[in-house]
């Protein structure tokens, strides 16, 4: 179809989203996009989610951390923020996330708010609650492997 004249084209805002998961979680773009759609529709309803029109443009996730750029309609960024906050898991894997910034272009969003790839985990052995445990550490953050899951800790917990 023919291009819309410029003043009728939708105006977008690009949200930089930072994600965190447990180290063993595997999350991909399609699953995250699905959660974004569910979250907007569940919180804002059909009309609200059509207004926000959230689309995941970029997605990286590796080693328990990641980032995404979500395109939303201008003037609906607060609604989008609220809906994103309600994403508590992707494909059953718990995620923590936060919007680190918003920009008018993808490029500005990437340059200002997206950090480079995270450094890989280092394997560590720690004593946690009087038991020897293996752990995955990145800078200050240490995820301790317990019998069934992980416990989030930091280097302060092992001094």
């Amino acid at each position: 179809m023919k291009h819309l004249p410029k003043h009728l084209q939708p105006r977008w805002r690009y949200l930089a989203v930072e994600l965190e998961t447990w180290p063993d979680a595997d999350v991909d773009r399609r699953a995250f996009q699905r959660e974004v759609w569910y979250a907007t529709q569940n919180l804002l309803g059909d009309t609200g989610s059509a207004d926000v029109d959230a689309t995941v443009l970029r997605f990286e996730h590796d080693d328990g951390t990641g980032h995404a750029i979500v395109r939303v309609r201008r003037n609906h960024t607060d609604a989008a923020r609220a809906a994103l906050a309600c994403i508590d898991a992707v494909d059953g894997a718990p995620v923590g996330l936060r919007v680190t910034g918003t920009s008018g272009t993808v490029r500005a969003c990437e340059e200002k708010y997206i950090r480079g790839p995270a450094e890989p985990f280092g394997q560590r052995h720690v004593v946690f609650e009087n038991a020897e445990r293996s752990a995955l550490a990145r800078q200050k953050r240490v995820d301790v492997r317990t019998d069934h899951s992980f416990v989030g800790a930091t280097d302060l917990d092992f001094r």
């Binding site: 965190e20 998961t21 447990w22 919180l43 804002l44 607060d78 609604a79 923020r81 609220a82 809906a83 994103l84 906050a85 309600c86 508590d88 718990p94 995620v95 923590g96 936060r98 919007v99 989030g152």
Partner: peptide, 19 residues
């Protein structure tokens, strides 16, 4: 209940406004 369940103040304010 975990650091993954934390949400930033701006997100909580936006969510509050939505509800």
């Amino acid at each position: 209940r975990s650091h993954l369940e934390l949400r930033a103040p701006r997100e909580l304010v936006a969510l509050g406004e939505a509800i």
